[in-house]
Design a protein around this nucleic acid. Structure first.
Lengths: 113, 113
DNA sequence: AAGATAGTTAACCAGATAGTTGAATATGTA
DNA sequence: TACATATTCAACTATCTGGTTAACTATCTT
């Protein structure tokens, strides 16, 4: 788990590092949305919105279903849980300041072999 | 909770969007580290390391204790749990595709008043 | 076929990022 | 005091980001 999919994890966290994109994610959390629906609350050009969605797609956070001339965007939970897992893994330790991380890392290493 | 500390959340996710910095975090998870200790596994200049640590500090993920000529870096869990919370909040919904998010958002709103 | 609607693409721009090298600062040690 | 060690700072570079406008593609409607 740790050190796996490094590239995607970079892209996921990068995608999350922008409040416009996080807001878009929260919009999609309730239901699928078209591009113009996603664009509506923001005061930026459609071209800019289009780019934001591409960033989310590249991070595998969103998939797009083309339906005629409208594109429907839906969250892909897989990538997000990767990010969550990364955080969880370390959270266990830093929250209690245990020194068990090394043990846990050894377990992971053994699993990988 | 949602939409709170937007700026810091941007910085936290940005800090996490780089595997060098994530590796540094994992090093600090077990114990506090000096700058040179943090630098050791990486093949980049100390100046570059110094910049990475500044990014982590700006995101409030790390605090530095200056001890003579060595600087000791320690994780600050507060910021990290912010990020974790953000992910958790939405995870609840997208994992089950419930339509309860709006209800939950209303609750949050009421709490804020 | 003509016009409206939904979205993308290309070219551009200012500012940020991630790295470099070289010099500076500050503290410890002989 | 002189030297070594730990780290930062400044100036520079190439690339990425987030935005713009204008033009393009594709589909729907009349």
């Amino acid at each position: 788990m740790v050190n796996q999919n490094v590239e995607n994890l970079n892209e996921v966290f990068h995608a999350l590092a922008n409040d416009t994109r996080r807001d878009m994610i929260s919009m999609m959390a309730t239901q699928e949305r078209t591009i113009s629906e996603l664009a509506e609350p923001f005061d930026i050009s459609l071209a800019a919105i289009s780019k934001h969605i591409k960033v989310l797609e590249r991070a595998n956070l969103v998939e797009r279903i083309i339906n005629g001339r409208t594109h429907i965007c839906r969250l892909n939970t897989e990538s997000l849980s990767q990010a969550t897992e990364w955080l969880h893994f370390y959270e266990k330790f830093w929250s209690k300041h245990f020194d068990l991380l090394e043990i846990e890392l050894m377990k992971e290493k053994r699993k990988e072999q």
